[in-house]
Amino acid sequence: MRRRRWRWLLGGVLVLLVTGCFAPQGPMFGDGSAVPEEASRVRMPVWPGPDGGWVVNSTEAGLLGQGRALVRLSGPGRRGWRLSLPAEFAVTSPQPGTAHSAFVRGHRVVLVGGREGRRGPSAIAGLDPEQGRLAWRHELVPGSRVFLYEGGFARVLVADCRPGSCRLTGLD
Rank of each mutant, 00 (worst) to 15 (best):
P24R: 12
P50E: 11
F29R: 09
G53P: 04
M28R: 11
M28S: 14
D51G: 09
A39M: 12
P45M: 08
M44P: 09
F29C: 07
P36H: 06
Q25I: 01
E38L: 11
Q25M: 04
M44Q: 14
D31Q: 06
R41L: 11
A39Y: 06
G52R: 06
T19R: 08
S58Q: 09
D51E: 11
G26P: 10
E60P: 08
V18W: 14
V46F: 09
T19L: 15
G53S: 14
V42H: 06
P24V: 11
S58N: 10
P45S: 11
A34S: 15
R41M: 05
P27H: 09
W54V: 02
M28P: 01
V55N: 00
N57H: 08
P45L: 12
C21M: 15
V46I: 06
T59Q: 06
A34K: 08
S40A: 15
R43V: 13
D51C: 03
F22E: 14
G49Y: 05
G32W: 00
T59S: 11
P24D: 12
P45K: 10
W47K: 14
V35Y: 00
A23Q: 09
P45R: 10
W47D: 13
A61F: 01
P45F: 02
W47C: 10
M28G: 13
G32N: 03
P48D: 08
V42K: 11
M44R: 09
V35A: 11
G53Q: 11
